[in-house]
Simulated assay, not measured.
Amino acid sequence: MTRLAPVPWAAPGGLTRRGLLAGMGAAAVGLSLSACGKSDEGRLNFYTWQDYIGATTLDDFRAKTGVRVTPSYFATNDELFAKLKAGNPGYDVIVPSNEFVTRMREADMLEPLDMAKIPNFANIAPEFREAAWDPAPRHSVPYTWLVLGIGYRRSRVQGTPDSWKWLFDSDLYKGRIALITDAADLIRLGAKYMGTSLVGVDAETARRVADMLGRQKPNIRRFHEDDGQDLLLAGEVDLVLEYNGDIAQRMREGPDIDFVVPREGSLINADALAIPKGARNLELAHDFLNFLLDAEVGRGITETILYPTPNAAAKALMPESYRTHPVIFPSGPGWEASEWGRFEGAEMQRLFEELITRMRAA
């Protein structure tokens, strides 16, 4: 793969979609969480991924509406689900991934949206306006999309590591590999490497994948909480299972860093904006969703986080260097073989987690 130039339009500093709570500091996070129990018509409580918004977006919304958006952060979809399943402590807008939109819909944890109050939904590209994971009546609107692949240091690998083999089934890069902790993603990508679809993975295939990863474990340096891009940038590992947007962010700081979607194909997901049941400010929540789908606002978000945007109007405002960036918008055999993930049900989720937990503990 040809090395990509640093992204010139990006905001300075390192960002991550799923970084742990570092950006604002523990005190600020605690303050945000404590605010969630209060009813305040001038405040909107936003539960999202760390550093997953434009540099001025929340201030811009306050300047326009007078409403202060108070963010707090989760590190995984499971954390989001567990927090809301126990009862909404006061969140008005959340950012679940597509599979968790399905899961939360099924558990009656999301408010149906009044699309008449979100006219900027017209800015969303046609291919993202209807989704199997959120059929009408809609309970979410698309925010970003993303694909898992291999981030790597070009100077430390042999050619382009364009197969899951180098992460899952080889000792060539022993001690220089980091994998994400998400059990379902590990099982499904392992199944993809074994030649099956990552949708509808059966129990036997899941066990075979867990056995393969168990054999590979001595070669793996870290299982990471989606900070693999930082491990790569720091030189702690040379290959990492990560999201395209996170690697694109680090490429502007590390010219030796690159990304590939393995030729077997990968997992495509989306993150969405939704209103949880129990939200206290439904009108303001709809206003906020509509604001985030504005073209100029969407451009500001995209310039900061560097993830692929489903907002066609915002994408049109971005420079060609973004719109044609082969890491942000992958192509080729691996991309063509990739599949959208879907929620496989609570029973299979429990099996995936049990298998990976057992593998890591062995």
Rank of each mutant, 00 (worst) to 15 (best):
L4A: 12
A5V: 08
P6C: 04
V7R: 03
P12K: 11
T16D: 12
R18G: 11
M24F: 05
G25Y: 10
A27R: 05
A27D: 11
A28Y: 09
S32Y: 02
S34L: 13
D40N: 11
Y47K: 01
W49K: 03
D51Y: 00
I53M: 13
T56Q: 15
L58V: 01
F61V: 01
A63E: 09
V67W: 00
V69F: 04
P71H: 14
P71M: 10
P71E: 10
S72I: 11
Y73K: 01
G87C: 12
N88M: 05
N88Y: 06
P89I: 10
Y91I: 02
Y91G: 02
R105E: 09
P112K: 07
K117W: 01
P119Y: 09
N120A: 14
A122K: 14
P126V: 04
R129G: 08
E130H: 09
P135I: 06
A136P: 10
P137M: 04
S140A: 15
S140F: 03
P142M: 04
Y143M: 13
L148V: 03
Y152S: 12
D162N: 13
S163N: 13
S163I: 15
K165M: 10
L167S: 08
F168V: 07
D169M: 09
D182N: 15
A184R: 13
D185E: 06
T196S: 14
L198F: 06
V199N: 14
L213W: 07
G214N: 05
Q216E: 10
E225R: 06
G228E: 07
Q229H: 15
L231V: 02
N244W: 02
D246L: 07
R252Q: 12
R263F: 07
A270N: 09
K277M: 06
G278C: 07
R280P: 02
R280H: 13
E283D: 15
E283R: 14
A285D: 05
F291D: 09
F291A: 08
L292Y: 00
L293K: 04
D294E: 09
E296Y: 01
R299Q: 11
G300T: 11
T304A: 14
T304M: 07
I305S: 07
N311W: 01
E320Y: 00
S321L: 05
R323V: 06
T324D: 05
V327C: 09
P333K: 10
P333F: 04
G334Q: 14
G341W: 03
R342D: 08
L351M: 06
F352K: 00
E354H: 05
E354K: 05
I356V: 14
A362L: 11
